[in-house]
Amino acid sequence: MTTASETTEDGRPPPSFQGRLKLDSFRFNADATVTGPRRSPRISRTPSLTAVPSTPSPVSTSRSPAKRRALTVADGASDEGDVSSPSSSSTSKKSTTLRTKRARQSSSYAPPSTYAHLPLLPDAIAPNLLVLFIGLNPGIQTARTGHAYAHPTNLFWRLLHSSGVTPRLVSPTEDRQMPAMYSLGLTNIVARPSRNGAELSKAEMDEGAAILEGKVRRWRPEAVCVVGKSIWESLWRVRHGRAIKASEFHYGWQDEGENMGISKDGGVLREDERVEGVDYSADWKGARIFVATSTSGLAATLKPKEKEDIWRGLGAWVERRRAERAQTALLTADG
């Protein structure tokens, strides 16, 4: 209880801090025994003798599958040359092998049943052709319209005109009239349609190579134009039993030893295999081969100018042969 001497004039108790704060009692004293809350070890003068190992934070499962796969691959790559336990190394190798096998199994190949609802594209072939063009296979747009190289992005008809193979720009709807108009024929190494060349198998293309040899042997065009590198690679693989080397490939006219349509066994066509109007003289040396670039809009390896230069090599030959034929026809008519 407060006495009278301990109170002020207005009856209130005197201030306990005696007019000022005693800050000394609030200062930090490292030597004092800690009885209150634990302080941070960073400000402690006596380091702890037992260090607590840090626990690695787990990989977040909120990452996308692609990121998790990337992390897995990165982890597997970092194991090379690392000092890890045999079990972890074995596990990493097994998972890497499994990923490789899965990657190899994935393919864009589409079986024939995928586009079985689409009609096949008939050949445009006739006797006395200057050039028989060999394409890869009909695309979806071509199969639906029934006309060769019908997709708007395909450069085939434009390259024919700009190179001089045709005197004017021809429409895809005129593909059936090409033999009669300009002595040019159309066929493919694979008959069935697909969205792109990746959906075809090498076996299909190799089988088509043998069929092409038979067509050229029967119709005997003066030359054949292979429209695309992959087609020539397949023809070469079947002819030579191996893949073509980079040093062996070139666009343009191929060596006459590669001429198509010559029977290896020297045999002749049967009477029922022959076509009226075709000259089957025994001195025929086969059709010369010209390898041109692909005209697909997806083929962007070469620049448009480079494609035009390659196709011009065929166009110049066609222009010369067309003029020679016209001159021969004129002389025959006069004689």
Rank of each mutant, 00 (worst) to 15 (best):
T3A: 11
D10N: 15
D10F: 13
S16W: 10
S16M: 09
K22T: 13
D24V: 11
R27V: 11
N29L: 02
D31R: 11
T33L: 14
P37Q: 09
R38D: 13
R39I: 14
I43L: 06
S44K: 09
S48M: 10
P53H: 06
T55I: 13
T61L: 11
T61K: 09
R69C: 04
A70L: 04
L71N: 08
G76P: 00
S78F: 01
G81S: 06
S84F: 03
S85F: 03
P86T: 08
S95T: 02
T96G: 04
T97Q: 12
R102L: 10
R102G: 00
R104D: 04
S108N: 13
P112M: 00
A116G: 03
P122Q: 10
D123E: 15
I125F: 04
P127G: 01
N128C: 00
L129S: 03
F133D: 02
F133L: 08
G135F: 11
I140F: 01
H147M: 02
A148V: 14
A150N: 01
G164V: 00
G164D: 00
P179S: 00
S183A: 13
S183N: 12
G185A: 05
R192T: 07
S194C: 13
G197K: 07
L200E: 05
M205H: 09
I211C: 09
K215R: 15
R220I: 07
C225W: 06
C225I: 08
I231P: 08
W232V: 00
W232E: 07
W236Y: 15
I244V: 14
I244G: 05
W253R: 10
I262H: 04
K264N: 07
G267R: 14
R270Q: 15
G277A: 05
V278M: 04
V278D: 02
D279T: 11
S281E: 11
W284F: 08
W284Y: 08
G286A: 11
G286K: 09
T295Y: 03
L298M: 14
L302W: 13
L302P: 06
P304F: 02
P304G: 04
K307Y: 06
R312Q: 11
G313D: 05
R320A: 15
R322N: 07
E324H: 03
A329H: 06
